[in-house]
């Protein structure tokens, strides 16, 4: 036979999954939220999203080039990071601050640790926290939108997020459709839930993390005498539980690990919301649990088929 054959180790077939397809699914799942952001906060959200996505992709390209590594912008993960970061920012933030956030996310947190799959915390979340600590007033400057109960004047009025607002300011309906202050991606609960359902149906994420996270938060709210449904719908909890805590790289791969991790996220979120000075605790909780993931995985390794526990004293 003249022609050369491929000789490789089995398996010889691969499924048609790909990293790019998964990232594309995440982008699709974030579309309702992005559209909602543009509808609720206007054209400026679209600009903010475009700036963040473009900056992240550019920085990913440039940093890989400088480090003399293969270009990875084709896997779309930088697009997801940019999109998530944008959805975590207030609409009137200075674009330069947003771009600084992209730098933190892509260059510092992601590429300096080895690129996709190697970062130990969620890049978008880490960037958001750096911005929150560095530019607290800009990051907590929530503008009101027309038609909102508090400030029906113009869209430059500041308002409190639902978590900081007095009880009774917002109804469940307000929270579901996003008639409240907050980051551009966190306000519209319906859009986030739609995206979450899409990800679960496409088997991109397992429902364990979001469900356990939300259930834990609801139980803690009951324990603290808060309204569980309000706590779930308000603030960044849904965005965090569905899109941030489920980040592959920074969440456990084992099923029990996912449960432990999600419970940890839920407990920390509610403790921070109740006792800390800040109204919100989702980002910090997820970030803390990210760091614990290797330990959680080690403790929740599955029992392999046929594993027999060695009797005490028995040596192999």
């Amino acid at each position: 036979m003249e022609n050369k054959l491929y000789v490789s180790s089995s398996p010889h077939f691969r499924s048609n999954n790909s990293t790019r397809r998964i990232m594309l699914d995440v982008i699709i799942a974030l579309l309702p939220t992005s559209v909602a952001a543009c509808v609720i906060f206007g054209f400026r959200s679209a600009v903010l999203i475009a700036v963040c996505v473009a900056t992240c992709v550019l920085l990913e390209y440039v940093s890989r080039k400088i480090m003399k590594r293969d270009t990875t912008i084709g896997d779309l993960s930088a697009v997801v990071t940019g999109l998530l970061l944008a959805l975590n920012l207030p609409v009137d933030i200075n674009p330069l601050i947003a771009m600084f956030g992209c730098l933190i996310a892509i260059v510092v947190v992601k590429q300096m640790f080895g690129g996709i799959g190697m970062n130990f915390v969620n890049p978008a979340l880490a960037a958001r926290i750096v911005l929150l600590v560095s530019f607290p007033s800009a990051m907590m400057h929530w503008v009101t939108v027309p038609g909102q109960p508090q400030g029906a004047m113009i869209d430059a009025t500041t308002s409190a997020t639902p978590l900081a607002a007095k009880a009774g300011t917002y109804s469940y309906i307000d929270l579901l459709i996003g008639r409240c202050g907050g980051s551009i991606g966190e306000v519209c609960a319906i859009a986030l839930i739609l995206g979450g359902i899409y990800l679960v149906i496409r088997r991109v994420i397992s429902p364990i993390i979001p469900c356990v996270y939300l259930a834990t938060a609801a139980l803690m709210s009951l324990a603290f005498g808060l309204d569980p449904l309000y706590q779930i719908l308000a603030g960044g909890l849904l965005l965090g539980a569905i899109f941030m805590a489920t980040d592959y790289t920074t969440s456990p791969v084992t099923n029990w690990g996912k449960v432990v991790y999600a419970i940890g996220c839920g407990v920390l979120t509610m403790l921070l919301r109740t006792y800390s000075n800040m109204p919100e605790g989702v980002s910090f909780s997820i970030l803390l649990m990210n760091i614990l993931v290797p330990h959680i995985e080690r403790l929740t390794a599955p029992r392999t088929l046929g594993f027999v526990k060695k009797a005490k004293g028995e040596k192999k």
């Binding site: 054959l5 491929y6 592959y248 791969v253 084992t254």
Partner: peptide, 26 residues
């Protein structure tokens, strides 16, 4: 078409291999 080898890229820790392993390994 079927024979061409796929080019591996970085692990994204999606955990699909963990759920696919019939021996429940990691």
């Amino acid at each position: 078409k079927e024979a061409r080898l796929a080019e591996p890229s970085a692990c994204i820790r999606c955990g699909k291999c963990v759920s696919a392993c019939p021996m429940r390994l990691l």
